[in-house]
Amino acid sequence: MAHTVRIWDLPTRLFHWGLVLAIPGLVVTANIGGNAMAWHFRLGYCVLALLMFRLVWGFVGGRWSRFSAFACSPSRLLRYLRTGGTAHDSVGHSPLGALSVLALLAVLLAQVGTGLFSDDEIAFSGSLTRWVSSTVVEQATRYHADIGQYLLLGLIGLHVGAILFYVLFRRQTLVRPMIGGDKLLPVAAAPARDDAVTQAAALAVLAVCAAASWWVSGLGAP
């Protein structure tokens, strides 16, 4: 018997699709350069707000969006890699999926963080460059424009590849639940709370994170 269960709450889904929209914009504006860099920075501060929100939501959000739901022992991960796991492994993020999400969040934080300390030596610089030495700015700029960019794109490529693998070989879609929130599961599972109170709380958290990102953006002003 199949069970339809709310797994991804609305705030988590909006966070996900916010990144899906923002990251291509960041890549395009970085490659265009020139005046497009103004939009690169605006999008960067938007992603900073989203990441701060996700860090908070990872502790207070819906059941399956919390970092505690990502916890996975080495033995469980090995069993999943060997056998494909159990039905319970497919409720939220699978053990491998959880590691992938954590890696993406870490690399995104590093990319946005180094962007705050980067300087293109032409017209644009991160809001925190004035607070650190030129050596730190040089190292942050090198990571942001080179290592970090390709590491992030590589992880995104793996993420997309995993989605295609599930569709083609396991006949499972990971995209539909991230749109509607519900998953069709072979086992019963506790649903994530996703009511008006939860969504209002998420909006309040996002507002605080957006204000914090805006404050950071102004730290570079003389």
Rank of each mutant, 00 (worst) to 15 (best):
I7C: 02
H16K: 01
H16P: 00
L21R: 00
P24C: 08
V27M: 10
V27R: 05
V27H: 03
N31I: 03
I32Q: 09
A36I: 05
R42E: 12
Y45E: 11
L50C: 03
F53D: 06
R54G: 00
G62L: 02
R63Q: 06
R66P: 05
S73A: 13
L77Y: 15
G85I: 14
S90A: 15
G92Y: 12
H93V: 09
S94H: 09
A98M: 07
L99Q: 14
L102Q: 11
L105H: 05
L109A: 14
Q111R: 04
A123N: 15
G126F: 07
L128E: 04
T129N: 04
S133D: 03
Q139G: 03
T141Y: 14
R142Q: 11
Y143V: 14
Y143W: 15
I156Q: 00
H159K: 00
G161S: 14
A162F: 12
L164H: 02
F165R: 14
Y166E: 08
F169V: 07
V175K: 10
R176G: 10
R176M: 13
M178N: 01
K183F: 05
V187S: 04
V187R: 08
A188M: 09
A188N: 13
D195G: 04
A200M: 09
L203N: 11
A210K: 03
A212P: 02
W215M: 08
A221M: 06
P222K: 04
P222N: 10
P222W: 15
